[in-house]
Design a protein around this nucleic acid. Structure first.
Length: 543
RNA sequence: GGGCCCAUCGUCUAGCCUGGUCCAGGACACCUCCCUUUCAAGGAGGACACAUGGGUUCGAAUCCCAUUGGGCUCACCA
């Protein structure tokens, strides 16, 4: 039995996804149970249904849970509720037990007092440890009196003065010296348990046998162990997964998007937001305070106005960018685990049956998007054509409805035929074929391209276009093959068989620039009327 | 700063536990060339790593120690 226990969030980031994937694979591969539990013990974070929007990302990746919040056929189970905020009465029982046995005590220091102590310790480069002598010296009557008077109080655990040995299936054994773990808070002033306490109680009560989580939690394990001992709980097996970083070694963060935007804005010396992107007042606040984050929608709008690409951080970002869920899972697995040998392409079924803790790597991984892209390209290339068409269509309807509305079914199909082998993502087709959705008489031509391929000494590109227009007008078989044979005679006589000579002028006339699918595909996609109209208009515009 | 952890190509990693078959294998990226109808894709080559210093041993990427470097953590956040 493993569990994935995130705090509520609308989005699942790749690190969390990897943790969830490993927990899931480990449990499923061993015939165990995978539990999803929401760690919403921080009242500052909202924990309504919308706040666990990340569950849709989990399901998109193919990660389903046996027990947990009920959603689309997943979840349920009789060891709930699976939201910690709904388990307060359960925790209360254990607080009382600890209090009664003297293993925990009330403390009344204010946040300000603690901060002052912490700052003082830091000023002397000393670690701060809460000793609790003063609080424990309080008589029972005094404590009762304070509580009655409504003084804010937390409950702290009295950590025994012994070294703590952490056994970890991935990292091995570590001994945390005595005194390193101080008397930490287990119940906040608002009555909510802290993370450490809730985790320990819930893992016990939910029957969690294996805890796989990110390495940043490693030190916390000491706290969890002393609590388990005090409460008489069994100890689950621990495995701490290596962290995933950005290529530059920085921590992958939601703020990375804002960082990119701020940088672009600073570079261009922009002082007010481009129209229809961000509210000017919000923009002013955002640009001043690096801790303020823009909403996804505003950030996306601003990015496209600035022409910058936001880094993908969340699973949903990768979906939007056109990555396949199975590729994400495959690639994520490779960050921190490998099946050994030279094998690196595998599906989740394989992961499920082969994942083991012994092969988890100890070192942090930098997330390499270009390798991910290469994996995605490969998956797209080996995909049957029908499947590709279907997936691109779904992606299009979800993320590019305008584009989909403007192309006919035939056009779309041709576009897929021409694009599959060159698509790195499901999104490529939409980003590189904008010329299709522009009205024939609104197409603009790239000045540089015009100069390069249309103008010059005769016969230049424009001359070719004039001739080609007439030939195409006679062409009845408007298929790739038909077009090719229709153009063949002209190609031989006027261009010496060098297709580039006429393909490039055609590209500019049809698409406005020098990049498009293969030229006969492009003609076929646009259709006869549109193609000829564009060619003639281009010829006329460049006298 | 204290504590803990980690250390193989630019990156993800195999090999390490059970020293020799490793002058270190794969993948991505990179470079060169080929193909070519633009962009891609594809094909063929190439360059690139055992952090350093000591041990142990006939022999070390593999075992031990030190140094250096990196990470995590030190909340009434999780």
């Amino acid at each position: 039995m493993t569990r994935f226990a995130p705090s509520p969030s609308g989005h699942l980031h790749v690190g969390g996804a990897r943790t969830a994937l490993f927990c899931w694979a480990f449990a499923k591969g061993k015939g165990g149970t995978f539990v999803l539990r929401i760690e919403d013990t921080d009242q500052k974070r909202s924990s309504d249904a919308a706040s666990i929007g990340f569950v849709k990302d989990l399901l998109w990746l193919g990660i389903d849970w046996d027990e947990g919040p009920i959603y689309e056929g997943c979840g349920g189970g009789d060891r709930g509720p699976y939201f910690q905020a709904q388990r307060l009465d359960i925790y209360r029982k254990y607080f009382d037990a600890l209090l009664a046995s003297g293993k925990a005590y009330y403390a009344f220091e204010t946040t300000e007092e603690l901060t002052a102590l912490r700052d003082a310790a830091k000023a002397q480069n000393q670690p701060f440890r809460y000793t609790g002598d003063a609080a424990r010296a309080l008589s029972a009557d005094k404590v009762a009196e304070f509580l009655k008077a409504g003084r804010p109080a937390v409950i702290r655990f009295h950590t025994p003065p012994n070294p703590i040995t952490i056994r970890d299936e991935i990292l091995g054994e570590a001994i945390i010296p005595a005194g390193e773990t101080d008397d930490f808070v287990i119940c906040k002033a608002d009555g909510f348990p802290t993370y450490h306490f809730a985790v320990v109680v819930d893992d016990e009560l939910m029957g969690v046998t294996h805890v796989l989580r990110a390495q940043e939690h490693f030190n916390n394990t000491a706290k969890h162990i002393v609590l388990q001992d005090a409460l008489g709980f069994r100890r689950p097996v621990y495995g701490h997964l290596p962290l995933i970083f950005n290529p530059d070694g920085s921590k992958m963060s939601k703020r990375d998007k804002d960082k990119v935007l701020r940088k672009a804005i600073a570079e261009r010396g922009i002082t007010s937001p481009p129209p229809h992107t961000v509210d000017p007042a919000l923009f002013a606040v955002w640009i001043k305070d690096k801790n303020v984050q823009l909403e996804i929608a505003s950030a996306t709008a601003l990015a496209s106005a600035l022409g910058v690409v936001l880094p993908e951080i969340n699973v949903d970002d990768f979906r939007r960018s056109g990555y396949l869920p199975e590729v994400i899972c495959n690639f994520l697995s490779l960050n921190g685990w490998s099946p050994g040998g030279d094998l690196e392409k595998f599906d989740t079924e394989f992961l499920k049956s082969h994942f083991d803790l012994q092969r988890v790597v100890k070192t942090p991984a930098k997330f390499d998007r270009s390798k991910l892209l290469a994996f995605n390209l490969h998956a797209l290339q080996v995909m049957p054509r029908e499947e590709f068409v279907k997936k691109v269509a779904i992606h299009g309807r979800t993320f590019h409805p305008d584009f989909m509305a403007r192309v006919t079914e035939t056009q779309f199909r041709s576009l897929c035929d021409a694009s599959q082998e060159r698509s790195k993502t499901l999104d490529d087709l939409f980003r590189t074929n904008g010329f299709i959705t522009i009205a024939d008489d609104l197409l603009e031509w790239d000045a540089k391209a015009v100069k390069k391929v249309l103008q010059g000494t005769s016969p230049n590109g424009r001359d070719h276009l004039t001739a080609i227009s007439k030939i195409l007008a006679q062409c009845d078989d408007w298929s790739v093959q038909g077009l090719e044979s229709a153009m063949k005679p002209y190609l031989e006589t006027a261009a010496g068989g060098n297709l580039g000579t006429i393909a490039q002028p055609l590209r500019v006339a049809l698409c406005g620039g020098t990049v498009s699918p293969p030229i006969f595909d492009t003609l076929a996609i646009l259709g006869k009327a549109s193609s000829i109209k564009r060619i003639d208009r281009c010829v006329a515009a460049h006298e």
